[in-house]
């Protein structure tokens, strides 16, 4: 008994050390990345990684499969682009406007969708995000098929010129890290604890006096706001916002990224997004049709790695020896 306790606790500290080492390694890699790769490519990965992590906050930690997250990602891209181009706001204000807009959209869609379960929830989020898509097609300020083009990157806090690629990169990295930090805190907070209890046994949570719909709505709005953070960031990086980002394919893509990497883990969606973006990048210059290849990869992953790549690693013998526990 004492023996067993001893082993678990030492594995536990071992895993903590390992995690710290891994985090530092990833951080060094991210700092060095713009000098090793094409910076805009890395920035794209970071935007999508944050988007997937925000999506996973909902799917992985509350069990809701939203098929409408493009509305928040793409919507925020429009809001940020519009604010910066038409109102001349600084980038940080532009992004905050995008986040606020996405949160407001999340509140409206969430209020309607949150009482539905399972497939009905997915369908209703899809339907509402499609309504938003058609709104973006029709309305004047989004400029229809053209989208909002040549958005100025501007000066961060009015000081730092984001047209300088390294500045832009480190801004993206900072926002990414802040976003991941918020998600981590959200999941590991008193609120996150109640979300966990809802996922584990909803009826019991109700019987303890929790108005569970409000907690679910809170998680939904937070997920939408963070998806908006990613979307606003993307609009600044690429200097445009278009219909691609609000289309249902984008909602599908983020599901793909998250499932590929592994739901319910912090790092899974980041890995999944990196893979999908890299794959798309590689295939863009080849003759293979991108959608078919990503579709096949997705199918292979679902069949071979049910927990996603990171989830399978955590559950593997090596992962367990390192002290990881597959999320339940």
């Amino acid at each position: 008994m004492t023996d067993a306790t001893h082993t678990t606790s030492s594995t536990f500290t071992g895993a903590r050390h390992l995690r710290t080492v891994m985090l530092i390694a990833i951080l060094i890699f991210l700092i060095a990345a713009p000098f090793l790769f094409y910076p805009i490519f890395v920035m794209k990965i970071l935007c999508f990684a944050l988007f997937a992590a925000a999506f996973n906050l909902l799917l992985g930690y509350t069990g809701f499969l939203s098929f409408g997250h493009a509305a928040f990602f793409g919507g925020a891209a429009y809001f940020t682009a519009h604010a910066m181009k038409e109102w001349g706001t600084t980038p940080e204000v532009g992004i905050l406007i995008g986040v606020a807009g996405a949160a407001a959209l999340g509140l409206v869609i969430g209020l309607i969708a949150i009482r539905r379960q399972g497939i009905y929830f997915a369908m209703i989020t899809l339907a509402l995000s499609q309504m938003f898509f058609f709104y973006c097609v029709q309305s004047a300020w989004t400029h229809g098929e053209d989208g909002i083009q040549s958005v100025p990157r501007g000066h961060l806090f009015g000081l730092i010129d984001l047209n300088v690629t390294t500045n832009m990169y480190f801004f993206v990295l900072a926002v990414f890290l802040i976003g991941i930090g918020i998600i981590w805190r959200f999941v590991n907070s008193p609120f996150g604890m109640i979300l966990k209890s809802i996922r584990e046994n909803e009826q019991r949570t109700v019987s303890l006096g929790y108005a569970v719909d409000r907690y679910k709505l809170g998680a939904f709005v937070m997920s939408a706001a963070l998806a908006g953070l990613a979307g606003g960031l993307k609009a600044i990086v690429f200097e445009f916002a278009t219909l691609t980002d609000v289309a249902w394919q984008m909602s599908g893509e983020v599901i793909l990224m998250t499932l590929l990497g592994g739901i319910g883990t912090m790092i899974g969606p980041v890995v999944g997004a990196s893979l999908v973006v890299t794959l798309q990048n590689e295939l863009a210059t080849s003759d293979f049709p991108v959608t078919i290849v990503t579709g096949l990869v997705f199918m292979a992953c679902v069949l071979l790695f049910r927990r996603g790549l990171v989830g399978e690693f955590y559950a593997s013998r090596l992962g367990r020896r390192l002290g990881f526990r597959p999320e339940q």
Binding site: R185, M193, S197, E200
Partner: peptide, 28 residues
Amino acid sequence: FPHLTVLENVRIALQRPNKLATQFWLPL
């Protein structure tokens, strides 16, 4: 709550009356 510890199970019930259920910014 099967994957929570005994302590955490009881704490879930205590969180709400002690107004420690909605803070998403506080650490565990």
